[in-house]
Nucleic acid binder design. Structure first.
Lengths: 357, 357
DNA sequence: TGTTAGCACTCCAAAAATATGAGTGCTAAC
DNA sequence: GTTAGCACTCATATTTTTGGAGTGCTAACA
């Protein structure tokens, strides 16, 4: 009674697969036909009763069929999908799909964007079109990347421009006001100082202690120069909040279970307040599990707004340490296989793109 | 019959105001009580029949009350609102509201953002909170702004960084690959060349002819230098598509007439494909009418997705030529007075912010 | 002991039947 | 030109009916 025996597994699988296909609660009759074990509906009913007690399935109301619970979906994702993945007809379908996607992606590559933002936005869109779910893509985090180049320039009498180029050609800039005009020579000195000390360090290495030491070095001018250094440090540290690109939000209206007012509103709010998505993604990054794929079913999600959906994310990596996330949000009753597959494919594309450049 | 006489106007106004308040179709009985002319419902009925024939109001179905048509709303916005604006109790309400908003805005100013993107995003949010509609804000166009400062730097052997600072401290940068390494001296020369020729020009003045002339000037190295100049030009021209910031998309679910699946989906799509919003905004900018306020009712909107909504935009200006737009999207049955008022207030805040800095 | 047929029962969903009532258009009288 | 009166319309809400899918339980069977 505690564990699922082989027969229960088969029945549970029948129920889930059926429900994924039809979206209708599935009854004992239907699932008896769906399995290869020749059992009458009555027997199935008994087993279903057990499964319900164990929490794998539930009834929308008395005298309706059963639908998978979050726990049921979880079991499906963890134990049933892999098996199925080997099945032949699946394999065949996958290949053709994969080909289609690759096509889409290479099309995307044609209009090769130099700006990473545009690229990621495009990725989000391709993902949305392919899966028909709402999608999100975060920029790779760069805090472990090293400073390649750093430059201060005078814009006018009381404004300096600080530009920092980081590995991966990520560029940050910051206009900083200065109370007192600096001479060309002073700016040059500052440039040399900053470059010799900060160049080659990763962004996360440039912390408060570091900065303090630097200010000491600066010596004489420390009053005004100190301010400049602080501002540069700020420019470097800024944008720690990773950007999130989204697409296909309207796709949620394709699924009746999500398109009623209040639910849709919740999801859309989460997509607008990207803060929330970052939380989700941060969690996904921390829960690394080897495959780089995370599945959150309903309440498993760290953010409340997603309690009626499933979220699937994949971690991609552009070179060392630059990890980002791509993910989709859809109904619990989603095509997990296809989604995971698509995510893997696109992640692969991102990989190869990095190698090319 | 062709023109609206005074009585018809009064009745029309009664209908519209009533409908704005209740959202229910309004019948002859109700509107007879709502006006000061003492007429029986029967008389009103006759007048309403006329108004319907003229296209100002319509019936959702036979034997229902009347609701304003697009034409009716249009008449209201053009001719009835101003009068009402003077009314005393309105005035009183407005003052307190205005005060509240100013408070909100100054709060916003406290956490003064140096990045204009963050500021505008914040403006969109404040607007959304104040009006309870979906909002959009476009960055001011900068193509008439002048180049303040321009700098090429070598990042490494085969990459150059071009940074362009424009009036208003808008910064654009672009990493450009170079096939052949340039010496420090060459880079310096290029910098001088670019600055002497481009500095002080507005972005729109830097066109193809300009660039061609510049290439000639470059003389000897023209093969490789030409490429660099092209890339710089591109960096300058880039981002011509104005950015759009949005907020409060979920607000549309507060209005039943918009929250059904397909309509909501349309609106949300428009907000996601910011391309569409830019069209709208471009139109608004071109249709300048003195006040800088534009109202699109239903099908008047240049983009189809907004056919079930009303859109109100206001043009703001940060110094000469830097025009941007703030706007809201809501149901046709919206509080036009309040919206226009809020838009004006916030535009004022943006103005004063510019003067301060 | 596990499996199955049978049956009464539950409950949702859709369809049909039935009010309700707000609002209209029209006519005839003032 | 205005109004009272009245028959008529039609969306909406409420109730009733029906159908059917599905369950749980029991008793019989292998």
């Amino acid at each position: 009674m505690e564990e699922l025996d082989g027969r229960k597994v088969k029945i549970l699988e029948a129920i889930i697969r059926n429900y994924l296909e039809t979206g209708e609660p599935v009854g004992s009759r239907t699932s008896s036909k769906y399995t290869d074990l020749n059992l009458s509906s009555a027997t199935i009913r008994n087993e279903m009763s057990d499964l319900e007690e164990m929490g794998y399935i539930l009834q929308p109301h008395t005298s309706a069929g059963r639908i998978p619970s979050d726990k049921g979906y979880r079991f499906y994702v963890d134990h049933m999908m892999i098996a199925k993945e080997e099945a032949l007809e699946e394999k065949a379908r996958k290949v053709s799909e994969q080909a289609k996607q690759v096509q889409d992606m290479s099309q995307m590559l044609l209009e090769k964007e130099d700006k990473i933002e545009n690229l990621l936005q495009q990725v989000a869109k391709v993902l949305a079109v392919n899966t028909e779910y709402a999608t999100m893509v975060t920029a790779p985090s760069t805090h472990r990347n090293k400073v390649k180049f750093l430059q201060l320039s005078r814009i006018d009498a009381n404004q300096l421009l600080a530009v920092v180029v980081v590995e991966g050609n990520v560029i940050r800039n910051h206009v900083l006001p200065v109370s007192e005009e600096l001479t060309d020579e002073e700016v040059l000195k500052l440039n040399i100082l900053l470059n010799t000390h900060l160049n080659g360090l990763s962004l996360e290495e440039i912390n408060l202690g570091m900065i303090a030491a630097l200010k000491n070095q600066a010596g004489i001018h420390s009053d005004i120069v100190g301010g400049v250094i602080d501002a540069v440090a700020e420019a470097i540290q800024q944008d720690d909040d990773l950007e999130v690109y989204t697409s296909g939000t309207n796709n949620i209206f394709k699924y009746p279970e999500l398109s009623d007012g209040s639910k849709a509103s919740e999801i859309i709010t989460a997509f607008e307040e990207k803060q929330q998505l970052t939380e989700l993604v941060t969690d996904a990054l921390s829960e690394e599990n080897g495959t780089g794929i995370q599945v959150y079913i309903g309440n498993e999600s760290p953010i409340q707004n997603m309690k009626d959906c499933s979220v699937v994310t994949a971690t991609y990596e552009l070179g060392d340490g630059m990890k980002g996330t791509i993910g989709i949000v859809g109904p619990k009753r989603m095509n997990y296989e296809k989604v995971i597959d698509t995510l893997k494919t696109i992640r692969g594309q991102l990989d190869s793109m990095y190698k090319k450049s």
